[in-house]
Amino acid sequence: DWFEAHRAHLAREKELTRFRDRIAAERRQLPWLKLRKDYVFESEQGPRKLADLFAGNSQLIVYHFMMTPGSDHRCEGCSFLADHIDGANLHLRHHDVSLVVVSRAPLAEILPYKRRMGWKFEWISSFASDFNFDMQVSFTDGQIASGDTTYNFERRPLRSRDLPGSSVFYRDGNGDIFLTFTSRARGGDPLIGAYHYLDMTPKGRNETGPFHGLMDWVRLHDDYDGEPEAEADCCHGRATLAQARTP
């Protein structure tokens, strides 16, 4: 009975795999948007344009890490995802893909946290450009006050000035850059390998707390054996990301 039940379920797993392959193929057929702005970022190597971030590859993935200028909060959800980047990046850079992390906070606020977490990926600041706003992952106070905020292709009121997501770009032989795909809200789940391990276990993700998501249990990887962040900042950040992670 155990064998037959698992064999029947395997048919559903294979159906999901084939469906995921079809969705990926459809994704590659989506229209591209040509970028006409020449964005400049602050990096450890000095000012860098968007074209420089490709580092000789034709494809670029940008992860938008929630870090608002001047804020002391460090997002557990973005950090959870970022813990999975370095291993994948070892292989991506050898397969015509560059991956960088971008936040709106100034570089001087980014680098101490990067060192604390021990991450090796390139993390740059878009503080002096419109990049985050044009990618619809950052919002002005005026937009938030008026409710004129669009995130994940949906216009809805938001409270946070910064939200997470991924943006994918292609640079052709003429040097033209195109936005080919964006992923927001729960679109980041496939990038979190720990979730795929949990999905195989009897208890699954076991997210039964007030937010019914990763904010119920995930901590910064050096906080599991220590004290969490101050409650006020922690809860604000968790509610914000939980809002972003709704389907």
Rank of each mutant, 00 (worst) to 15 (best):
D1W: 05
R7G: 06
A8D: 15
R12G: 15
L16E: 06
R20W: 02
R22L: 14
R22E: 15
R22S: 15
I23Q: 01
K34Q: 11
D38R: 15
V40I: 12
F41M: 03
E42F: 08
F65P: 06
M67E: 02
S71K: 05
D72L: 03
R74T: 02
E76T: 05
C78G: 12
F80S: 00
I85W: 14
G87W: 15
D96P: 13
V100Y: 03
V101C: 12
S103M: 04
A105M: 05
A105E: 10
P106Q: 07
P106D: 06
K114A: 11
K114M: 11
R115L: 08
E122N: 05
S125H: 03
S126M: 02
V137S: 03
T140Y: 00
Q143E: 14
N152G: 12
E154H: 10
R161W: 02
D162G: 06
P164W: 01
G165T: 02
F169Y: 07
F169E: 02
R171A: 03
G173L: 10
D176H: 07
D189P: 00
P190N: 00
L191K: 04
L191R: 07
Y195I: 14
Y197S: 09
G204P: 00
E207M: 05
F211H: 10
H212C: 10
G213H: 12
G213R: 05
M215Y: 03
H221A: 02
D223P: 00
D223M: 05
D225T: 13
G226K: 09
D233R: 05
G237P: 03
G237T: 01
T240V: 14
T240D: 15
T240M: 14
